[in-house]
């Protein structure tokens, strides 16, 4: 069974290079000519996840795993962790720093956007233990095609 696995580093508070890992992920999906609407959903999830890691501190990585029928995206960081996951999922709830807000980030829509665009999402986090967000996307089989 063929599968492609690749990881991309995320550097905390590096707003200049923020988003580059997501762009690399997209370039792989585009080379495989996945359905544009699906690429867009993955791009949004990937970017929001990457920005969460950049904003809330803690270095991390994006893990991309593509299999025949599904794509998994994991965004792991060593940041402060999430105290109340349910609350963090509420649209508009944000604990972003003043610095991040001044740059136009931290509107509190990150996890909401990820939840809306991924087929499944799982968040594993606790204070002081970093955050691991895993998202799954179903891939149409080549026969069905986009």
């Amino acid at each position: 069974m063929a599968s492609l696995q690749k990881s991309f580093p995320i550097v905390a508070r590096d707003f200049v290079h923020a988003g580059e890992a997501s762009i690399h992920v997209q370039s792989i999906l585009k080379a495989m000519r996945m359905d544009p609407a699906l690429i867009r959903r993955i791009a949004i999830c990937c970017y929001e996840g990457e920005m969460n890691a950049v904003i809330h501190g803690g270095n991390g990585q994006i893990l991309l795993a593509i299999e025949a029928d599904q794509l998994n995206l994991a965004i792991n960081d060593d940041g402060p962790g999430i105290e109340d996951i349910e609350r963090a999922m509420q649209p508009g709830y944000s604990t972003a720093s003043e610095e991040a807000r001044e740059m136009g980030f931290g509107a509190g829509m990150g996890l909401t956007n990820m939840k809306n665009n991924a087929d499944a999402i799982h968040i594993d986090s606790a204070p002081g233990q970093g955050t691991r967000v895993t998202m799954r996307f179903a891939l149409p089989s080549p026969a069905e095609g986009p």
């Binding site: 063929a2 492609l4 792989i28 080379a31 495989m32 000519r33 299999e67 025949a68």
Partner: peptide, 8 residues
């Protein structure tokens, strides 16, 4: 399009 095998 590149296949998964080709990407590997």
């Amino acid at each position: 399009a590149l296949t998964l095998e080709q990407m590997e």
